[in-house]
Simulated scan of single mutants.
Amino acid sequence: MELENLSKCTNCGAPLVQDAAKKLKCPYCGSDYLTPSAEQEITAPTRRQDISVSQAEPQNNNGGYFVALLVVVMVIIGGALIANNNAPGDVKYADSLVTDTTRNDTTVAESSKKEENPYKPILDALSGIQIDSQTFKKLYRKAYRKADKFTGNIEIADQSSPRYVNINGFYIYIMNDSSGPMLRFATQYVSNDWLFINEMIINADGENSTLTPEFKRDSGDGSIWEWCDMSVPDENIPMLVKIAGAKKVSLRYSGDKYYQVVKVTAKQQAAIKRELQLYKGLLLGYKGH
């Protein structure tokens, strides 16, 4: 029997009365009856909960796997976006490789500079002088060497160079001390008359070089001698290389009133070349033993 057609109680037959909650109630026996709307509100959820598992739609496990995969992909994409936002500018992976390589090359260059010979400018000026370790040992053994027992300095000169200042001479020699080898230039003029030399011009195959060192003077037994002994500036090394290899070299001593021209002999040129070879070998770190 449908509820909307009830007018009497089914238990006792008394007429039903609708209360404030719109429920039908028997005033005699107290039986309650739900209206259609109330019945729908209560019974509808009950019907959904009573559905058995066998009646429910089968679960699709592939859907769970898909969701998990989607989450992983989203995490990866999110991480990539964060990394890209933190990177400076539009730097790409290939660009970072180029940058790293450049930095490594710079490091190698800086290391090469540190290992570079500190005498490189002088060695460049001596590029026309050839020397190897074996030749250096031979020249070193034949050279005149004198050690100063007070300072420890070692003078290295050619055997043909004069040992005293009262002999004509034009030569170079090496003074080797704790700071390294130093090249020195010496010239000696011996005669019967004073020149009072204040300048000398060296002509090597037509090319002139002017020097104004300070000359010292002395005399004895009817002779006079004027000489100078000076360190060689780096800028004068090419001049010595030129003298060593020239076909013709002459020297003009100029004094207060007079001048004198003398020839630089082939023997003196050869001695200058040997000293330049020894000097270069020392700068290169060659050992004489």
Rank of each mutant, 00 (worst) to 15 (best):
V190L: 10
Y173M: 00
D193C: 03
E199W: 05
A157I: 04
V190C: 09
G152A: 00
D218E: 13
Y189R: 07
S219Y: 14
E226W: 04
Y173L: 07
E199N: 11
S191H: 11
D193F: 13
I237W: 02
Q159K: 15
I197C: 06
G152R: 02
R217A: 14
I224Y: 10
E214G: 11
W194N: 03
L183D: 06
K216D: 07
F215E: 02
G152E: 04
N203S: 14
I172L: 11
N166S: 13
N198R: 13
I156G: 03
N153Y: 08
I167K: 15
K242T: 06
F196R: 14
M182S: 13
E207Y: 10
I156A: 02
F196C: 09
D221N: 15
W194T: 00
F185D: 01
P162K: 03
Y173R: 07
N208L: 10
M175P: 02
F150K: 14
I243K: 03
G245L: 12
D158K: 00
S231Y: 14
I172V: 15
S191M: 04
F150E: 14
Y173F: 14
C228E: 13
D229A: 05
Y171M: 07
M200E: 08
I154H: 09
I156Y: 06
K216A: 06
M239E: 04
W194V: 03
S223D: 09
N208G: 02
S161Q: 05
N236F: 12
E214H: 12
M230C: 08
E199K: 15
P238F: 05
C228W: 05
S209P: 01
A186H: 05
A147S: 14
A204N: 00
Y164S: 15
L183H: 01
D205V: 03
N192W: 13
V190D: 07
G180Y: 04
E226C: 01
D234V: 04
I224L: 07
N168Y: 00
N192Q: 15
F170Q: 06
T187V: 12
M175S: 10
D218H: 15
I201N: 12
G220C: 05
Q188T: 05
D218C: 08
D221I: 12
V241A: 11
Y173H: 09
A204K: 01
A186C: 08
D158Q: 01
M175E: 14
V165W: 14
D177W: 10
M239H: 01
V165L: 14
M230Q: 09
T212N: 07
P233A: 12
S161M: 07
M175N: 12
S191K: 05
E207G: 01
A204C: 04
D158G: 07
G222L: 08
E235H: 05
F196A: 13
